[in-house]
Design a binder for these strands. Structure first.
Lengths: 259, 259
DNA sequence: GGTCGGAACTAATCTGTGTTAGTCGCAAGA
DNA sequence: TCTTGCGACTAACACAGATTAGTTCCGACC
């Protein structure tokens, strides 16, 4: 009953006890997957919906010449798309970025769940909308944000997404991505990620060590990243977990923070 | 009955006459919107689902300092998300990139449509999956593709998406985007778009004038872009419309085409 | 407790793309 | 017909970030 998927969906709608029971029953047995192992390969026929219970995973596409782009991150409570079983072939792969615990929900069960509960149906729809919005925000980052803004924005997003499901401890939270992982997510090289991270540290905005992130000055970080959490579409209030900066100044034609 | 939305959904599932009739009835009266006008503004409460019947629109986000990123393109038959009415606030705006004809489906009607027909329900779900896949592919383009590959890839995508709904004429199709539009979609400047376009022309790969695109050498263009149409997830066969190159050589560790 | 491999970090150099500042052509309106 | 404005196009120069080639650090495993 207290699994991250339930907590996640609770941020969109108020689930009844019956809903959470059904959800818990729907989850298959937990599976452990080691770090750096593909959970799903490109070209697979996706038979079931995978739910991340613990650890981080990432969707990615890789070119023949080795270039790789991580296209989204799956944190605890995230699913590899509630409708994925409708497709015949995965167009991308999913890798465990840390050791990961997964549960599966079969396509059949998923359809049952949604047809039995309007609330769950709505929750999954909202979840899909939120995922789409995150993907759009990544597109914006890769297209128009500088290295510094891009990294700052991602760190804001990851902190908030974790705070929402109770995984943040005030201004700090897990951040198990390596610098090469960050590079593949942000469309850069690990060398440049390192430089940019140093800049953020030197500016006193974040601390990041032993896989743990602390937002030292959330206000200035949000402002630098022009981070507007609206896009995460959490309707019920969990956001920020004590780290909600005041409204950004809309008059600022440039990020308020420079380094 | 022969509207682009129907044609689009037909690429995913086989719709019955009853389905297409219901769809046609669901569409509200057509609305004309002039080029460069916002169809939906950021912050709006989305009451209904907009469907593009004619013309091109684009989702975008704009920063206070003027930087703009077009996050996706809406072609005829595309909807601004079948579930959008669940949200309270648009996190991005939608602009008419050409004069556009729209129809609306209210949230209520949309829910009716889907609850009355399993097939329509599945069609809309598949449509959402395809849209998500396109968004991921854009993320890959912005993150890891060079200017040349990026532009080539987008042109392939736009040609194929139009071919699918019967808007392409063999290897050529409408392409009403201006170079500044392309720049905002590809995360670049119009100056560089122009340079890159000249390169593609000089290589004899495409012709683009008076808002019309012709793929002069689709095989080499697909190969340059490493374009793999799987991600569009059209299960029924409309793709290519006579311009389907043979399978790309998976052994090629580098794009086969250089300039 | 050593060694091994990958992640963190640094520095020098290179380059793809941005910036700035134009010209030209064309289509819409006055 | 003349203007106006925007899109297509070009050139010179600047710079953010890539590339290459390391060294150091740390944790996992023998």
């Amino acid at each position: 009953m207290d699994n991250p998927l339930t907590r996640k969906l609770q941020t969109y709608v108020r689930l009844t006890g019956a809903d959470t029971d059904r959800l818990a029953d729907a989850l298959g047995p937990a599976r452990r997957i080691g770090a750096r192992i593909d959970i799903v390969a490109e070209g697979d026929d996706p038979r079931a919906v995978n739910v991340v219970l613990d650890g981080w995973a990432g969707r990615y596409k890789q070119f023949a010449d080795g270039r790789r782009q991580i296209v989204s991150l799956l944190l605890p409570g995230d699913t590899c798309d509630p409708n994925i079983f409708l497709l015949e072939r995965m167009d991308h792969a999913i890798i465990a970025l840390t050791p990961v615990t997964l549960a599966q929900i079969s396509g059949r069960t998923m359809q049952d769940l949604r047809s039995r509960s309007e609330t769950l149906e709505e929750a999954f729809h909202r979840e899909m909308l939120a995922v789409a919005a995150i993907q759009r925000e990544w597109t914006v980052s890769l297209g128009r944000r500088s290295a510094l803004e891009r990294l700052a924005h991602l760190l804001c997003e990851l902190h908030l997404r974790q705070a929402t499901i109770g995984l943040a401890d005030g201004p700090s939270c897990p951040m198990p991505l390596t610098q090469p992982d960050l590079a593949d997510a942000l469309g850069q090289t690990s060398v440049h990620i390192n430089r940019t991270l140093q800049d953020l540290r030197r500016a006193g905005l974040v601390a990041l060590r032993s896989r743990r992130l602390t937002l030292l000055d959330p206000d200035r970080l949000w402002s630098l990243a022009q981070f507007d959490p609206t896009y995460l579409h959490h309707t019920r209030d969990h956001a920020g977990a004590g780290v909600r900066p005041r409204e950004a100044d809309p008059a600022a034609a440039r990020p308020a923070v420079r380094l």
